[in-house]
Design a binder for these strands. Sequence first.
DNA 1: AAATATTCGTTGTGATTGCAACGATCCTAA
DNA 2: TTAGGATCGTTGCAATCACAACGAATATTT
Lengths: 147, 147
Amino acid sequence: MTFQLDQFLPYRLSIAAAEVSRRFAERYAAEAGLSIPEWRVLAHLAHSGSVSIRDITRRVHLDKSVVSRAASRLEQAGHVAKCGHDGDRRLIALCLTPQGEALMARLAHIANDFQTHLQDLLGKDADAFDAGLTRLLDQAGRPDNRS
Amino acid sequence: MTFQLDQFLPYRLSIAAAEVSRRFAERYAAEAGLSIPEWRVLAHLAHSGSVSIRDITRRVHLDKSVVSRAASRLEQAGHVAKCGHDGDRRLIALCLTPQGEALMARLAHIANDFQTHLQDLLGKDADAFDAGLTRLLDQAGRPDNRS
DNA sequence: AAATATTCGTTGTGATTGCAACGATCCTAA
DNA sequence: TTAGGATCGTTGCAATCACAACGAATATTT
């Protein structure tokens, strides 16, 4: 039974993802000193308006403790404000401050550039690659409701 | 400037890789109680014969401290033996024990099944998806010589 | 309404990671 | 030959993560 690790899809996928993330993280770390969780929280807030930590946790694939601490750091940096939620006092409504919006505008530009760069790199395989990702992600979200 | 995190390629890639790895890790953790680094070291040894930690570090995309500790655990579990290298006494020659080979035979079967499962899931996009991964990985290995 | 269960965000904890020393060994050049 | 530098594997350390426990607030059940 032969087995070649470097032809094994989960391995290749993992290395590719780590490398792509590392490269992109370099850029927004240089721009704003953000960690990966901080970037994700910020990016999610950018197109979701006011959201609770629970919502972010669910949509952004991070543990709630990670989101909580990332949100605190973002708040301390002045990018995010924590307003109490109206109806449910357990919830916290996170939203971007004007400063956070300005930062996110710059980051969105960087992100879109990076995405374009990747699509160029993928060339003719770009569409099928993305379709494949969709299939893997659909399968992922299916069975467990993530604790 | 609109930005949708869940259409952003590095993010999608990262989630997909994490999910695929998690699923596969479930299987070999159930079979042998291995961590991801331990699995990678074992899998690399399976088709590389006797190798040093340095070699594994380079080919398997893990820090040398991680490889070192994984190798120690594998040795303690009896899957791997550390023989001194012939010419260079700085190097360590890692190789599978018979027990390690037997384990790896079972794991190779599990891995190949999983790979087949993923390819079925990808369907007609499988080839292009793999080609895309190759492009991303080629780009990755290019510029820096990884410390 | 009272009691119980569930959910929210935070915080504590053990394990793991990445990075930087460190001794030991080997290589290179004077 | 010998001194200076490079490389090997290990280990120490700070930062981070996953998971559990917790108080507070809300839902649900009786």
